[in-house]
């Protein structure tokens, strides 16, 4: 599925949920469905540290496509990681770099990303975009 198609499905799912409690419940559920990250990959090098929670992120590039495994110690951040996984994992570096991130605002997740240092989500996205840039020229 393309980034746009994934985005459409996710927006539809989020819109079905009536209140924030249900939205967070869904987000946590998505986190539980995220493929497990091997403990060996949770290294200092793969750690994107925030003052409220941490994210581990292992990225590799194959044929100009970006693949990654990720995890977080926070269930909510892990849910956001799962959304990022659905949207971007296995997509071409070019599609990833030109992707419109307004999706996060549409579903109200933006405040988790805008608090720059708090949970490592925005650092994680920056990390992903940088890897995609390297992947373009790989």
């Amino acid at each position: 599925m393309s980034i746009k198609e994934q985005e459409k499905t996710l927006i539809e799912n989020f819109e079905l949920l009536e209140n924030w409690e249900e939205k967070y419940d869904y987000l946590i559920e998505l986190g539980y469905e995220l493929p497990e990250m091997s403990e060996d990959l949770k290294t200092e090098q793969n750690l994107v540290k925030g003052c409220q929670s941490s994210v581990w992120f292992n990225i590799r590039c194959e044929n100009h496509k970006v693949f990654f495994e990720a995890d977080s110690d926070s269930l909510i951040v892990k849910g956001i990681v799962a959304v990022v996984d659905k949207l971007f994992n296995g997509q071409t570096a070019e599609d990833l770099l030109t992707a419109d991130l307004s999706f996060f605002e549409t579903v109200g997740l933006w405040r988790h990303l805008s608090a720059q240092r708090s949970n490592g989500v925005s650092a994680m996205l920056a990390h992903l975009k940088k890897a995609a840039t390297d992947c373009l020229t790989d």
Binding site: E21, Y24, Q52, S74, V77, H112
Partner: peptide, 8 residues
């Protein structure tokens, strides 16, 4: 996790 509790 403290952050999860706080957000919810």
């Amino acid at each position: 996790q403290h952050y999860d509790l706080g957000i919810l």
